[in-house]
C-alpha cells in the first residue's frame, strides 16, 4: 500500500529518459547511419529495412497478444516454419492453388493456438512449457511428410514418384510483388501486410474493449474474473491470434523463398521475441504494446541494416541484437518500476 502520490506534471530528467530514451536512440541511430553509411538514407534502403523486419514484426505482434494476457508463446517460430512447409506441400505435392494453401496455413495456425490455449488454460501447463513442447512437436511434425527433405518442384516423394506441382504465381506475388509508391516497384506486399496488421493490433488493444480486458487479465487475472471477464476464453483467443499471425509470417517467408526450405526461419523466434520485449521500453510503456513492438522490430532492422552497410561482419549481428535487448529490458524494468 503506497501512500505516496506522484505528481505527473513535474517530470524529472529520469522520467524523460524512460519515456523518450528509446525513441531518441532510434532517431540518433538513423542520423548516425545516414551520415556514416553511404546509401543508407535512400527510399530503397528504407524499404529494404521494412522488408527485412516484416516477418519478424508480424510474429512479434502475435507474441505481444500473448504477453498482454500475461502469457508467452515460444511456438511462434515453429508455427511459421510449419506454415512455410505446409504451404509448399499443399502446392507442390498436393497441387492445390494459392488460396487453398493460404487458408490451410491460417487454419493450422489457429488450431495450434487453440491447442496451446487449451494446454495452458484447461490443463494448467505453465505457458513456457506448453509452448516449448508445441515448438518441438511442430519442428518434428513438419519433417515427417517429406522424410526430412526440403520441398521444391520435381523433388522425389517417399512413394518414389516426383512432385509435379509448383508454387503458383499468385502465391509468389505475396513475397515478391512490389507496389508503386512515388517510385515504381517500391513497397513489397509483406510491408503492406505488416503495416495493416500492426495498425489493427494496436487499434484492437488500445481502443476496443477486448484489448482493454486482455490487459486487465494480464495485470490481475482474479480481479478481471470477478469483474465478469471470461478469462479462459480471452487467454485462448490470445494464443490463437499468436498462432494465426505466426502462420501469416510463414506464408510470407514461403512466398519470398519460393520453396519449402527446411532450414529457414531459424532466427524467427528469437528476433520476434526480442522485438516484442524491446517494445516494453518504447515511450516508457513498461508493458506489452503494439506500437512498441513495431518500433522494436524496426529498431533491430535499422541497426542490422546500418551495420551491414558499414561492413560489420555478419557474425556480430546476434551479439548486437542481444546487447540491444538487454539494454532495452534494463530501461524498462530497472528505471520505470522504481516509482
Amino acid at each position: 500500500m503506497s501512500e505516496t502520490r506522484v505528481n505527473k506534471r513535474s517530470m524529472s530528467i529520469k522520467d524523460y529518459a524512460i519515456r523518450y530514451g528509446f525513441v531518441a536512440l532510434l532517431i540518433g541511430l538513423v542520423v548516425y547511419f545516414g551520415i556514416a553509411a553511404e546509401g543508407f538514407s535512400s527510399p530503397h534502403s528504407a524499404v529494404f529495412i521494412f522488408q527485412s523486419v516484416a516477418i519478424t514484426g508480424i510474429l512479434a505482434l502475435g507474441v505481444t497478444a500473448t504477453l498482454v494476457v500475461g502469457g508467452f508463446d515460444l511456438s511462434i517460430g515453429a508455427v511459421a516454419t510449419s506454415a512455410l512447409m505446409l504451404s509448399a506441400y499443399m502446392m507442390v505435392v498436393l497441387e492445390q492453388n494459392a488460396f487453398v494453401a493460404v487458408a490451410a496455413c491460417l487454419l493450422m495456425g489457429a488450431i495450434v493456438g487453440l491447442i496451446n490455449g487449451f494446454l495452458i488454460v484447461q490443463m494448467r501447463v505453465p505457458d513456457l512449457l506448453a509452448t516449448l513442447g508445441m515448438m518441438f512437436l511442430l519442428i518434428g511434425a513438419q519433417r515427417i511428410p517429406t522424410e526430412g527433405r526440403s520441398i521444391a518442384t520435381g523433388m522425389s516423394l517417399p512413394d518414389g514418384s516426383t512432385a509435379q506441382g509448383g508454387f503458383s504465381p499468385e502465391f509468389l506475388a505475396l513475397g515478391r510483388h512490389r507496389f508503386d509508391f512515388f517510385i515504381e516497384n517500391l513497397i513489397p506486399v509483406s510491408v503492406v501486410i505488416l503495416i495493416v496488421i500492426a495498425i489493427s493490433i494496436w487499434f484492437f488493444l488500445e481502443y476496443t474493449r477486448y484489448g482493454r480486458v486482455m490487459y486487465a487479465i494480464g495485470s490481475n487475472e482474479r480481479a478481471a474474473s470477478l469483474a465478469g471477464v471470461p478469462v479462459k476464453k480471452y487467454r485462448i483467443i490470445a494464443y490463437m491470434i499468436s498462432g494465426v499471425l505466426a502462420s501469416v509470417g510463414g506464408i510470407l517467408l514461403a512466398a519470398r523463398l519460393g520453396r519449402g526450405d527446411i532450414a529457414s526461419g531459424n532466427n524467427l523466434l528469437l528476433d520476434s521475441v526480442a522485438a516484442a520485449l524491446i517494445g516494453f521500453a518504447v515511450l516508457g510503456a513498461a508493458k506489452p504494446n503494439a506500437f512498441g513492438t513495431a518500433v522494436g522490430a524496426l529498431f533491430v532492422g535499422i541497426l542490422l541494416q546500418g551495420l551491414t552497410m558499414m561492413n560489420a561482419p555478419y557474425y556480430t549481428q546476434d551479439f548486437v541484437k542481444g546487447g540491444v535487448l538487454v539494454i532495452a529490458l534494463m530501461f524498462t524494468f530497472a528505471l520505470s518500476n522504481r516509482r
Binding site: 474493449r209 480486458v213 482474479r222
Partner: peptide, 29 residues
C-alpha cells in the same frame, strides 16, 4: 489488492472494467 484492483490500470479503467460491453459499440469503447 488480489480481487479488485487492476494495478496496471488508471482510475478510469478500473471503474469501467465490468461495464465495457455496455460502454462500447462494435467493440470500440
Amino acid at each position: 489488492g488480489t480481487n479488485g484492483v487492476v494495478q496496471d490500470f488508471d482510475i478510469n479503467r478500473n471503474i469501467t472494467l465490468p461495464f465495457l460491453s455496455s460502454l462500447s459499440t462494435l467493440g470500440f469503447v
